[in-house]
């Protein structure tokens, strides 16, 4: 029995395909300007990487901001429920997690059965989301993946006074103009974002183990900064961007099994 989870986010579209709840393959593609096309591409890629013929009768759950655009999906589920399920599969001891996405950050609590128990999203705007990291990479003219690989060595992180991704961008440019070092600037950005992320987590109550997922969790500097604030070791999956899609694929597998019986 084949199941798939497709997570259409504002920046990236992710997919996981599984057979009898064992992952066969996964993919991550930029969402681009058309979520419908992105969803189709993820689906085709998954089928190809799993070595399956077209129309394998897979049961698909779509999630994420653009879930509705995956019109071929059997059903949609909130990304919160999918994330919770995905994390539970990888780390059953995790009770609190924050998903740092491109548009939103979401803190949630997972119960001992892997179900979403409580959640909180950053409101209003992209402040507190990973969007700012993309902007900073652009300002510093470095590849976003290279940026995330290692935490910056900084003695004096630059202070940021704003929570807003747009203002933070102009603030970063001003700091560079004042002669801030690249490492200090980066460390400052990570610290500002980390304080928003941990604030979100504290508002729903932190119970360990604690995990960070989503594209933001690929930044070692951010993970380190959050660890410093909350004083806990943080669990990060090897591919934190795929958690939602993984959860969706697993829920899809469970659902289709129930339907078959």
């Amino acid at each position: 029995m084949i199941s798939a989870g497709i997570d259409i986010g504002s920046a990236f579209s992710k997919g996981v395909i599984a057979q009898n709840q064992k992952t066969l393959g996964s993919c991550i593609l930029p969402s681009g300007g058309d979520f419908r096309i992105a969803a189709e591409r993820v689906k085709n890629e998954l089928i190809a990487c799993a070595g399956l013929p077209q129309d394998s009768g897979e049961y698909v759950i779509a999630t994420g901001l653009g879930a509705k655009m995956a019109t071929f999906a059997n059903e949609t589920k909130s990304e919160l429920a999918c994330q919770a399920r995905g994390i539970f599969e990888l780390y059953p001891a995790v009770r609190t997690a924050v998903d740092i996405g491109d548009s939103y950050s979401r803190a949630f609590r997972i119960d001992e059965n892997g179900k979403l128990a409580r959640f909180l999203m950053n409101t209003k705007c992209a402040g507190g989301s990973a969007r700012i990291l993309k902007k900073i990479a652009k300002i510093l003219q470095v590849d976003i993946d290279d940026l995330g690989r290692t935490a910056p060595e900084s003695e004096t992180p630059t202070e940021f006074n704003t929570n807003c991704a747009v203002f933070a961008e102009s603030e970063a440019v001003s700091r560079l103009a004042e002669g801030s070092k690249k490492e200090d600037l980066l460390a400052g950005i990570y610290r500002a974002l980390a304080s928003q992320v941990s604030n979100l987590a504290e508002r729903i109550g932190i119970e360990s183990d604690f995990a960070l997922v989503g594209g933001g969790a690929k930044h070692a500097g951010l993970v380190k900064a959050v660890e410093e604030i909350i004083g806990l070791r943080i669990v990060v999956p090897p591919n934190p961007q795929l958690c939602g899609a993984l959860g969706a694929a697993l829920i899809a597998g469970e659902t289709s099994r129930i339907q078959l019986n």
Binding site: K77, S78, E79
Partner: peptide, 14 residues
């Protein structure tokens, strides 16, 4: 509205 949809959906799923 799109932003609220996720929250409402998750609330109902719970």
């Amino acid at each position: 509205i799109g932003r609220l949809r996720t929250r409402i959906q998750a609330f109902l799923e719970m």
